[in-house]
Amino acid sequence: MQPSSIDKYRTYSDETLLQLISRKDLLAYEALYDRHAQTVHNLLKRIVHDSATAEELLQETFWQVWQKAEQYAEKGAVAAWLNRIARNKALDQLRHDKARPRMADDDIGMLEQSPTYSYEGAEKVVEQRLQQQQVNQALDNIPGEQRLCLELAYFEGMSQSQIAEYTSTPLGTIKTRMRIGMEKLERLLRASGYPE
């Protein structure tokens, strides 16, 4: 058999990799992990605020991909699907651990820290760095109170009424801030080329 190089797999689209994974292709699985694990791990750590839990959930997220790759519905980007699985797992974990740690003040709006990257190709590092820049620039251009609502909902899993209580703000105001904040974020990301 011809030795398979993972480099070939790195050129495949996410959708192709998922099709191969549904046929239990190990190299395809590894390529997908290498492509998305960094972002998924960042997201998990941001939500659960605990390294060990984030690592466990990272493994569980990709284990679900291995077992249920054929369930990907092809209705959106694979990255979005992966992030949704990870976020749901992390928020379930938060709800399970009832003693949920409050978000540290310096987490709000925290942007880049000194990043350390895995051993993936430099191209991947570049892509992530640019994507992070684009999203953070878009968030920077949203008024702080709207951005806070989006981050509390997305990263902390809070409902509108919980955000209203947490920020001591009327519910109606929170609803307006969230809707307008999301619409602004959408316009800004589209203007910068995301989401594709």
């Binding site: 750590k45 980007a77 979005a80 990870a86 895995s118």
Partner: peptide, 19 residues
């Protein structure tokens, strides 16, 4: 799709190799 992009706003962290 817009919501999914919020994942990229999470601060970059070292990815543990043992996972």
């Amino acid at each position: 799709a817009t919501t999914a992009q919020l994942a990229y706003a999470a601060p970059p962290l070292p990815l543990p190799g043992h996972v």
